[in-house]
């Protein structure tokens, strides 16, 4: 038990703990929106497209997060543009951006001279190596997400539930769609360091599925998803530390087990 509390005195663990809080809030809120609105597939496309930006950053030697943000936001807006303006089927345009980003990433990383040591931490995440600068970015993201969802709570909810009705009422639906999809892109990218590109989608969907077992109210879903995401991340973090296994994968595994147990509980009690 001493070991357990001692952990909190370590600098790397304090940062990991903060990262868990920030990731849980932003992913809890944005993920609830994604799941309710049924845009999980778009979010997957954005996530994987961001790998292209990380590859480019490795090649040219700038901050990979900046490359990832550029590719994520670019593909988010690109998917919307392809679908709405160029009239490509939505699932096809998602697949195009999804694979284009991955392909570019692989080419850029291959072209990068020497060994790329950090590549794995972007693909699979490592919450124990999050830097102070990255924590600040996560903090700012949280402020933006919380502000947007509290200021425009009803508008976001109504558009998500019935876009046609909101359009008929004269709400700037397109503007809100671009705003929210940009937030999705930023949330994905700034949380990549926690669980990685491959697994980030689960932080946006599994806590929400768990919370959805207990509430059907949108506001409660936002809050409960964040709480469940935090519990899962923290428990996963402890398990990974004491068993010395990869943190990102352990966190996701914990979240899935939580979902399974609570689903069983709901079914039988």
């Amino acid at each position: 038990m001493n070991n357990f509390f001692e952990l909190f005195s370590y600098d790397f663990f304090q940062k990991a703990f903060l990262a868990a809080i920030f990731a849980s809030i932003s992913c809890g809120i944005v993920g609830s929106y994604i799941v309710s609105r049924r845009i999980v597939f778009i979010s997957g496309g954005i996530t994987h497209a961001s790998f292209g930006g990380i590859g480019l950053a490795f090649l040219l030697g700038f901050n990979p997060l900046i490359g990832a943000v550029a590719f994520a936001v670019g593909s988010a807006l690109g998917i919307q543009f392809f679908t709405k303006v160029a009239r490509v089927r939505e699932d096809s345009s998602i697949a195009i951006f999804w694979s284009l980003g991955m392909a570019l990433g692989i080419i850029f990383v291959w072209m990068t001279p020497g060994y790329t040591p950090n590549l794995m931490s972007y693909l699979f995440g490592n919450i124990l190596t999050v830097s102070i600068a990255e924590l600040w970015w996560m903090f700012i993201l949280n402020v933006v997400v919380i502000l947007t969802f509290s200021l425009f709570y009803r508008k976001i909810l109504y558009i998500a539930f019935d876009e046609e009705f909101a359009r008929a009422a004269g709400l700037p639906v397109n503007l809100f769609n671009y705003l929210t999809i940009t937030l999705v892109a930023l949330t994905v990218v700034l949380n990549i360091r926690v669980v990685g590109i491959i697994l980030i989608l689960s932080l946006l969907t599994i806590p929400q599925a768990t919370a959805n077992l207990f509430t059907k109210d949108f506001k409660n879903l936002l809050i409960l998803s964040s709480v469940i995401a935090f519990l899962g991340t923290l428990i996963g973090l402890f398990i990974s530390y004491f068993m010395d296994i990869p943190s990102g994968a352990t966190i996701i595994f914990t979240l899935v087990v939580m979902f399974g147990l609570l689903k069983l509980y709901k079914t039988f009690f």
Partner: peptide
């Protein structure tokens, strides 16, 4: 969609 009757009416 996770939305209550009250919120639907209020929309």
């Amino acid at each position: 969609f996770p939305i209550t009757v009250y919120d639907v009416v209020r929309s």
